[in-house]
């Protein structure tokens, strides 16, 4: 998978992971992938809600060692 941009939102509280993701999406082109890593447990539901609202696609999502990883495709 060709990830164009990696955003590290580790340690950041709500709503910063979402705001960082928004800023990141502005720098990549439609169809490109962005990876966001967060430690905020609330970001699991929030990232899905954000993707649903903006129209970007949540392609992949997993968690390990208290880190939540999201791969999103720019709409």
């Amino acid at each position: 998978m060709d990830i164009k941009l990696k955003v590290d939102a580790s340690g950041l509280s709500c709503p910063l992971p979402i705001l960082r993701a928004t800023q990141g999406m502005k720098t990549i082109a439609p169809g490109e992938l962005m990876e966001v890593v967060a430690t905020d447990p609330g970001s699991v539901k929030d990232m899905a809600a954000w993707a649903g609202s903006t129209g970007h696609t949540l392609v992949e999502q997993d968690s390990a060692n208290g880190k939540f990883r999201f791969v999103l495709r720019h709409k």
Partner: peptide, 8 residues
């Protein structure tokens, strides 16, 4: 800020 980030 979150609503704006969600394209509202």
């Amino acid at each position: 800020s979150t609503a704006a980030a969600m394209d509202m």
